[in-house]
């Protein structure tokens, strides 16, 4: 009886370990995560318009239908990236996600304070290589550090009412993400 209880206790402990291990490993093993879904439609380092979600078709679950969305799947392994998007009339936001779909930075039109959201995206190593004087002279240059070499930039423009679709789409069509 005691032996049985010990086996059971061991099994429970091992079960706990299996549970934690699977939860931690799952993000690395997922084949249908947002990055994989975007990879299917977007080449590296270019801005692609995401088709608006419909009941039949949506690139990702829980997309907000009130937004026009474009995406840039970036790869910083060769060079840092220059990103820019003109702001639309209502609300424009740019959100940055790591390779494992974790948001690490977001900026909106009001925080940018200009007609264009403009920034440089680089890895921590590339940032460390920047000449120091350049860092100072370009005080108004916004530099975002990406924790991973690849990831996603989601560019969203609010369509406050149906008539505003073309304006939002136009703003997003002018978005650029290019290696320097």
């Amino acid at each position: 009886m005691i032996r049985m209880t010990l086996w059971l206790l061991g099994a429970l402990l091992l079960g706990g370990i299996v549970h934690l291990a699977t939860v931690l490993i799952l993000p690395r093993m997922a084949t249908q995560d947002a990055y994989a879904r975007v990879s299917a439609i977007a080449p590296v380092n270019s801005v692609i318009a995401v088709p608006p979600p419909t009941p039949e078709n949506a690139l990702m679950p829980f997309m907000d239908p009130a937004f026009a969305v474009s995406v840039c799947r970036y790869d910083l392994s060769r060079a840092p990236l220059k990103f820019s998007v003109p702001i639309s009339q209502a609300y424009t936001s740019v959100s940055f996600y790591t390779r494992s779909d974790v948001p690490y930075y977001a900026i909106n039109d009001r925080a940018a304070g200009r007609r264009v959201i403009e920034l440089d995206l680089m890895t921590a190593a590339q940032r460390a290589e920047l000449p120091e004087d350049q860092d100072i002279t370009a005080a108004d240059r916004l530099i975002v550090t990406s924790p991973t070499t690849t990831g996603l930039i989601m560019i969203r423009a609010l369509v406050p009412e149906l008539g505003a679709v073309p304006a939002a789409r136009n703003a997003l069509a002018a978005a650029r993400c290019r290696p320097q």
């Binding site: 947002a34 679950p61 936001s93 977001a106």
Partner: peptide
């Protein structure tokens, strides 16, 4: 919506293919 996302939410996001709203966005 932050890098402090807990492991369960992270696994859920990976499984469903959802992109959480970034905390700087909303």
């Amino acid at each position: 919506g932050t890098p402090g996302i807990d492991p369960y939410a992270r696994a859920m996001v990976a499984r469903t293919g959802d992109l959480p709203v970034g905390s700087g966005d909303g």
